[in-house]
């Protein structure tokens, strides 16, 4: 190898350049794939519909029972137990006595929802 010349090294350089370009391309592609996945997951995993449904159910419950009574207590337990068993969500809510909020008698309602990923807490006057 005494007379080794370096004339051919540009070929290696070209190969390296192509490899680099490919890496950058891959980086961009990876990002775009992630965009698609996160949008779908964002929608699938954020339990928007679940929380809305729970809220409307609690308001429906207040419409029927107001604060606790025997029937209401059983329903409350239905909601908590079934949520845990079927939807893996810890749910809790309390309903207070009506208060005068700018001329209307409204009940303070606290809602808690936690499914292991998303935690949601709300205090609302209904």
């Amino acid at each position: 190898m005494a007379c080794m010349n370096e004339d051919g090294q540009w070929i290696v350089l070209m190969g390296l350049l192509t490899a680099l370009a490919l890496f950058f391309l891959a980086l961009i592609i990876n990002q775009s794939a992630l965009v698609g996945q996160t949008t779908a997951e964002g929608v699938l995993e954020f339990p928007k519909n679940d929380i809305r449904d729970l809220r409307s159910e609690i308001f429906d419950y207040i419409d029927r029972f107001g604060t606790m009574n025997f029937d209401g207590d059983a329903i409350r337990k239905d909601i908590i137990e079934i949520s845990l068993a079927r939807k893996n969500a810890v749910v809790g809510f309390t309903v207070g006595d009506p208060q005068d909020i700018s001329g209307r008698m409204l009940r303070p309602v606290t809602i808690h929802y936690y499914n292991g990923v998303t935690e949601y807490d709300e205090t609302v006057y209904y």
């Binding site: 090294q9 290696v12 190969g15 192509t18």
Partner: peptide, 8 residues
């Protein structure tokens, strides 16, 4: 060098 570039 051709082989090296190809392998890379």
């Amino acid at each position: 060098e051709g082989v090296a570039a190809g392998v890379i």
